[in-house]
Design a protein around this nucleic acid. Sequence first.
DNA 1: CCATTTTATGGAAACGTTTAATCCTTTAAG
DNA 2: CTTAAAGGATTAAACGTTTCCATAAAATGG
Lengths: 356, 356
Amino acid sequence: MKHERSKRFHKMAKITDIAKRAGVSIATVSRVINHSGNVKKSTKEKVLKAIKELSYTPNFPARYLKTKRTLTIGMVVPDITNPFFPMVFRGAESVVKQENYTIILCNTFEDEYEEMRYLSILEAKKVDGILLIKAPARSGNEQYMQKLKNLSIPIVYLDRLPKLQDIPAVVADNVGGGYAATSHLLKLGHKRIAIITVHYPLTVHRERLQGYVKALREHDIPISRLYIKKGASTIEEAISLAPSLLNMKNRPTAIFVTNHKMTIGLMRALEMAGLQCPEDISVVGYDDFDWENVFHPRLTVVAQPTYQLGQAAAGLLIEILRDRTDSMHHKIVMLSTELKIRESCGIYRQNKLRKP
Amino acid sequence: MKHERSKRFHKMAKITDIAKRAGVSIATVSRVINHSGNVKKSTKEKVLKAIKELSYTPNFPARYLKTKRTLTIGMVVPDITNPFFPMVFRGAESVVKQENYTIILCNTFEDEYEEMRYLSILEAKKVDGILLIKAPARSGNEQYMQKLKNLSIPIVYLDRLPKLQDIPAVVADNVGGGYAATSHLLKLGHKRIAIITVHYPLTVHRERLQGYVKALREHDIPISRLYIKKGASTIEEAISLAPSLLNMKNRPTAIFVTNHKMTIGLMRALEMAGLQCPEDISVVGYDDFDWENVFHPRLTVVAQPTYQLGQAAAGLLIEILRDRTDSMHHKIVMLSTELKIRESCGIYRQNKLRKP
DNA sequence: CCATTTTATGGAAACGTTTAATCCTTTAAG
DNA sequence: CTTAAAGGATTAAACGTTTCCATAAAATGG
C-alpha cells in the first residue's frame, strides 16, 4: 500500500484548475491574483468567483521559484525561555506581519555550532532575511566567521554584535545600562559595589561591565578584581559564584547583576546565606518583567527596550529587503535603557544599610 | 536601475552546476544527495567534491515541488510572552529538530480571526503540519470551524481542545490541577475558598473550575457564585476583579487563581488592599517558573508539564507525518500536573490564619 | 474610416528539483 | 561463451507558479 494522505486531506486546487473553471488562461489568473497587468473587470470577476468556489490559495514554495521570495524570515535566539526574547520576538513579529512575513524561530542555546546548523537550514529554506541574536563566539572558530560572511541572505544583528563591524544591527545601550545601575548605587552611598556578569565573549556583558567601571572611575573608586565575578549565565552559576562575594572580609554592600538568570540565582544565594535585601545588601538586576514589581524584594533593575529592539531590527531588515541592497550596510541603531528604581537598594551611610 | 541583490550576495550554485563540474547528470547528483538509488563510489566522490567546492545546498522550496514536504511545521500560540508557551515551544522544537524540521511561530493574541489568518498563511506556505494552541472560540463563528475542518494540513491540538473531538491532541490534566489545588486548601482547613478564572470559552479553564467544584463537593462545601470570579486573562483584569472578593463581608480565606497573569494581578491587588499572604489570605496559583521559588511570597502553584506537552504534541505530529495517515486521529494524550507546595498558603483554624 | 495606441488575453519558457523510464555496462551463472 | 540479472548513469517529464512575448480586440485621434 502506497503512503498517501487519507481522504480527509483533499488535494488543493491549483492555478490551472482556476483557469479551466473560469475559462481563461493561467496567465490571466496569475494577473488577477497578483494585481499585475490589466484585466477586464468581467473576467476578473469570473476568476475571483472560481477562486472562491475552489477555495484556491497560491502555492508559496512554487511561487518562490519565480519570485525568489518566501515571505519568511528567520529569527535565531539563544533561548526563547529567557523572557527577554519572547518580547523581542513579538516586537519583530508586529512589524513583519504588516508585510505578510512569517517567522521561523530557532533556539541555539548559546551554542555557536547549533547556530551554524540553523543558519545553514535557513539558507536552504530560502528565508528572505535573518534576525540574528548570536551565540557567544568560541575562540578561534574561523569556520563560523567564514560562514557568516558568505551567507547568501541579508542579516540584521540584534542585541549582540559580532567582531566584524560593517553590518546592520540594533542593540541596547549596554554601557549606559551598566553606568546607570552603578551610578544609582553610588548615589545611595555605596562604595563597595560588586558586579556579577557573564564570562562569554559577548559585547553585551563586556559593555555593561564597562559602564560599571566608568561609573566607579568617575567617583574615584578603585576597581577591585575581587568584586568582579564572571560565570555562565545560569541560576546555578550565580548561586555558586555568590558566596565568594558574600563571605569576604570586606563584603560588598551592593551587587549589580548584569543578567536576568543570574539575578534570580543571586537572590537565592542571599536567602541561603541568611541575608536580607535590601537591609543587609543591595541588588540591582537586569531586565524587567511583570512580576518584578509585585513580589519581594521588588527589584531595582535596568530595563531594556525589548519590544522596541525587535521592532527596530525587523524594520531595518524589511527596509533592506524592500530595495534589495546593502545601503544600510553600516547602520547600527542603539536604543537606550531605563533604570527602574524599586526596593532592592538601601541607603548606605556610616557602615549601616537602611531603607531609603 | 533594476533592483537586484548587491554583489555581496553571490548567486548560489544549483544542481546543474554540480552536475557540470562533476561531469555527471543531474539525476546522479540528486541520487547522491538523497542517498537514493545506486551510484558508483568514484562518481559519488566526484559529486561530493563538487558540492563542497561550490558549497552547494539544495533549494528547499524547489525540492518541495516534487517531494511535497517543506520540513517546516507551524506552531500557533496565543502569546509567546506568557512564559508557559516558550517552554512548550522548546519541548516541541527539541523533538522536531531531530527530524530536521523547523518551526514557524505565530502569535494570535487569543484572537480567532488572527488565528484564521495565520492558518491560511501556513497552509499556503505548505507547512507539513501544525501544532495549534487555539484561541478561545467566538460564539457563532461557524466560518472558523469550517476552516479548521477543511484545512489540508495535519493538526495536533495542544493544551486546548476545540469543540469537535475527533482530533489528535495533547493536553494537561486540568481538572486534576484544579482539584489538587483546592484539595490542598481544604486540607489546610480552609472553607471559604474563592476561585479567579478566565471567562473565555476554553476547555482549560472550564476544567480547572470543574476540579475546584469537585473538591468542594467532596467536602460538602456549597459552591457559591460569589466566590467564582471570571475575567480576561490579564494582570489588570485580576486587579480589578479582586476587590469584589477582598471586600466581601465573608471574605474568602483562600483564593485559587487558574492562570499565570491573573496570579500576578491578584498578588498586586492584595498589596494594594494591604493584605499579607499567607498571613491574611492564602493563594494558590497556576504555572511554575524559576523566580517563583525565590521571591516572596513563594507561591504554591500547580505546575504544568510544559516542556513535556510540547514534546508529546510534536512527537504525535511527527508520527502522523511519518506515515501520512489519520490513524492517530482520535488519540488524545493527557499529561498530569504537579502541585508545588511553597509558602503562600497558611493554615486556617478557628477564624485565624497562620503560617503552616 | 483608417492608423495608432492602449487594453486584454494567451502561449510557452523558466525557476531548481525528483523520479520514472530507459539505456548501456558489468558481473555472475550455467 | 552466452545469457540473464544487476548496477550505474542519462533523458526527460513533471511539480505550480510568474512573466516575457506575441497577438487580438478595443479605444482613440485625426
